[in-house]
Write a protein that binds this DNA or RNA. Sequence first.
DNA 1: CGTGATTTTGATATATGTCAAGCCGCGTGG
DNA 2: CCACGCGGCTTGACATATATCAAAATCACG
Lengths: 245, 245
Amino acid sequence: MPPFDMGRVRDKSSAVDTTPCGACPVRTLTVCAALEADEVRRLADIVQMQRIEANQTIFAEGDQADALFNVTSGTVKLYKLLPDGRRQITGFLVTGDFLGLAMNESYAYSAETVTPTSLCRFPRRRMEALLDEFPKMQRRLFSMASNELAAAQDQMLLLGRKTAREKICSFLLMLSQRQSRRGHKENPVHVPMSRADIADYLGLTTETVSRTFTQLKTSQAISLQEGNRIQIADMDGIYDMAEGV
Amino acid sequence: MPPFDMGRVRDKSSAVDTTPCGACPVRTLTVCAALEADEVRRLADIVQMQRIEANQTIFAEGDQADALFNVTSGTVKLYKLLPDGRRQITGFLVTGDFLGLAMNESYAYSAETVTPTSLCRFPRRRMEALLDEFPKMQRRLFSMASNELAAAQDQMLLLGRKTAREKICSFLLMLSQRQSRRGHKENPVHVPMSRADIADYLGLTTETVSRTFTQLKTSQAISLQEGNRIQIADMDGIYDMAEGV
DNA sequence: CGTGATTTTGATATATGTCAAGCCGCGTGG
DNA sequence: CCACGCGGCTTGACATATATCAAAATCACG
């Protein structure tokens, strides 16, 4: 699937600002937030926008890492595989998330779209040059990496020590909190990924994920709605269950 | 346990270099590696060295995060707890590792010594000021955070998808590779932590860890030696077992 | 040497995985 | 417009890796 180049986006309210980034609706959410106008312009010079349909590979583990990405819409999953095919999804990225914080010469994980997705693509070399030039950007990236690291530690606690029910409840809360931090309402929760993806994210099987959802449904803690939405009926209860209380 | 201040360390081979960092034997391993002489001196100005005995808390989850640390000798464990006491160890730090990459106003995890440990302590505010001043240091820290992130993803794969035997083999290999990267021989592997710590790191129980070790011993893949050392007899076999091959 | 902690070993329980079938929604093509 | 088929989800019956509970063995340390 060749990337479709959307070209320059024109900002209708301003004749001056013709760069794609200047008009970017998610600029405040991501690396770009900390930047001055001229810095954004420099970023706009090297960025390339692309739209990718659902269930497509963005890159695979082991590929030469010559680009970084920013998700501007849609959902992306990152995962690692064992030789026999067992899969661990290490994260779901949504609007505003940065893709490529942890990398060497080659990608250490694969990335695939879950839904149709828009990406900003930054060639790696040019991005690195920009980082040297703008310490503020570097700082921002470092702080994002720190947050990722904290999230990764939470996920280790989940994978190593939580029960299936605790995992599912934690997962729903994570999605809910993510929504509300992005300015949407916390409920109902949009869950665009398949049972198999959820299972591989939580270290379970699809069957166990499915059974746990029906249990929660039966106990009135949640209810499934139209369009991959889950209403959390008993938010406090789910909160407690997520921590084993 | 009040930190014991070792004061300034004198470098016997050089009358000039009286800063603690200038004489530091592990300088090449860590943040300090990338720095110029004057930068190291500035770091030396704010650093405070301390020695802590085994099994002592360095800080606890939720404490106000007003210092970062560098491990100059010994082993430290980081962990998170669930309300009912279940524990997940998220990492073991050894000589040269940096403590405090992921943090906000308060620590998101607890840190405890496993063996007697020496630390360089950096007051956080002053460290941040230095980071602003020396982008090279910031860059180095970012790169360390990236590596941590990659390691965290490997650990998620381990916790979510590997069997007990695969976990133990991966763990031994990690320790072995860490030793050899630090200039020691890869075999035998020094394992200073208790079965309980290993269990909480791998998402198992002490009983399962113990049983798995005896299995590996019985199948001649490893042998236990004096002083918490494990000889990996069949390195290739362990390697394959770590990945489920 | 004795005493408590840690580790190992054993017997049993259980949460979750595996295998298998049926169901549901949805796009396709007759 | 309906029948068909296919992928994803749910449910069921059963298997099993690992946890739990308990006791013996070994270790560390005063």
